[in-house]
Simulated scan of single mutants.
Amino acid sequence: MIHLDFSKQIEIDKIPSKESWQKDIIDFLKDWYAQSATITTKTSGSTGIPKNIELSKKAMIQSAKMTGTFLHLQVKDRALLCMPSSYIAGKMMLVRAIVWKLDLYCIKPVSHPLENITMEFTFSAMTPMQVENSLDKLSFIKKLIIGGAQLSSQLQSKLKTRPTDIYESFGMTETISHIALKKVSGNNTKPFFKLMPNTKMRIDKRGCLCILTPFLKEEIITNDLVSIISDNEFEWIGRIDHVINSGGIKIFPEQVEKQLKSVINSDFIISSLEDPLLGNKVVLIIAGKKDLELERQILDFNYANRYEKPKEIIYINSFARTPTGKIIRKM
């Protein structure tokens, strides 16, 4: 564990550097305190090959201020960094710690981050997989944001009764972390994301979200299909680049997956294969061994749209994932 109290001067040369995750933290801090006005980071690679992009330090500071204000962070609050500092989520935890002068504890990014934790934290950020593996110790964290992948309906139901203030985040590397949060703990949760302060949105002709933040000069045009609920609220539908056209019917994989998560416990995705009649047919890919009883439940399932029923079920050993836990959908 690395302890960095940002209310004081940080001596970078005294930070342990034996492991790669430690070196990532050191490299970021050196870059941050250097004269350059930008930071180089890489995209997650969930929808294509990871690429390096340049982010403005000034914009990262403004983003950190917005998150801290939203979560009511205070100087000397104890925070936990358990995500890779080579990606934007980990970098932004460090920036928030710098901006808000937090008492930051850094641990190796693992799937069970709270396994050896014995102290309480005001704030942390995790992936859904990390949260799933930390349910018995989430009370050690007062405020938690979850990002990197979509939350399953099963995990959301488990989080409703937790004493922790838990938010699902919406954002991408290009928007410098999240631009919207959705409360998923407590009794008054809604299926909508709420924009961060002074952030504006619209949908384009495709039905995709376009974002204008107070810290970015240009509008960010996404491939995320959304339904706008109000001036500062939206519901996420899915990715336009995942949409399946099957016999002229548009199928949204994420919406089908949301339904099937109530019967499938293992990792799975909805995808498609070429079909001479339909053009593309809906297929279900499951990580695991063939299960005839599960197949019966899937075929008998009451789908919102009958065209969403998979025409074929394929089994594989496991899915490739990004470092933040997203399944890489391109097979």
Rank of each mutant, 00 (worst) to 15 (best):
L144N: 05
E115T: 12
E257C: 02
L29G: 04
N317M: 07
S63E: 06
I166C: 11
V75W: 08
S36M: 02
K158N: 15
P128F: 12
L138K: 04
S63H: 14
N188C: 08
I327T: 03
K57Q: 05
T199R: 01
E312T: 04
I166Q: 09
V263I: 15
F268L: 05
M92T: 02
I316F: 03
S85W: 05
S44L: 08
L55V: 13
E308H: 15
L71Q: 03
L135W: 14
T175K: 13
A59G: 08
S46P: 01
T175E: 07
N188R: 13
T118H: 15
I146H: 11
I313K: 07
D13Q: 12
I237V: 04
L159W: 00
I117V: 14
D77V: 01
E132S: 10
L73K: 09
K160W: 06
T122L: 02
N187T: 14
T161N: 15
D24S: 00
I327S: 06
S139Q: 12
N245W: 06
S318F: 08
K289G: 02
E295V: 00
S272A: 11
S17H: 14
W100F: 01
H72N: 14
T161W: 09
F123I: 08
L216T: 07
G247D: 04
K30Y: 13
Q130W: 09
T175H: 08
N317C: 01
Y87H: 01
T189Y: 02
N52Q: 12
D165F: 10
A79F: 04
F319W: 09
M1K: 14
A79C: 10
I26W: 05
T38A: 08
P84M: 00
S7T: 09
F301H: 04
T38R: 05
I298N: 03
K190H: 13
I25M: 10
S86I: 05
K57H: 10
Y105C: 12
I286H: 06
L159I: 04
Y33E: 01
N280W: 01
M126I: 08
S134C: 03
E233I: 11
T164W: 06
E54A: 14
K14Q: 12
Q62S: 11
I61Y: 12
I88G: 05
L81G: 03
L102G: 08
G288E: 00
I220N: 05
A287I: 04
D300W: 12
K143G: 06
L260W: 13
F28T: 03
G147Q: 01
Q130H: 04
K309R: 15
I327D: 05
L81P: 08
D275G: 00
S139C: 09
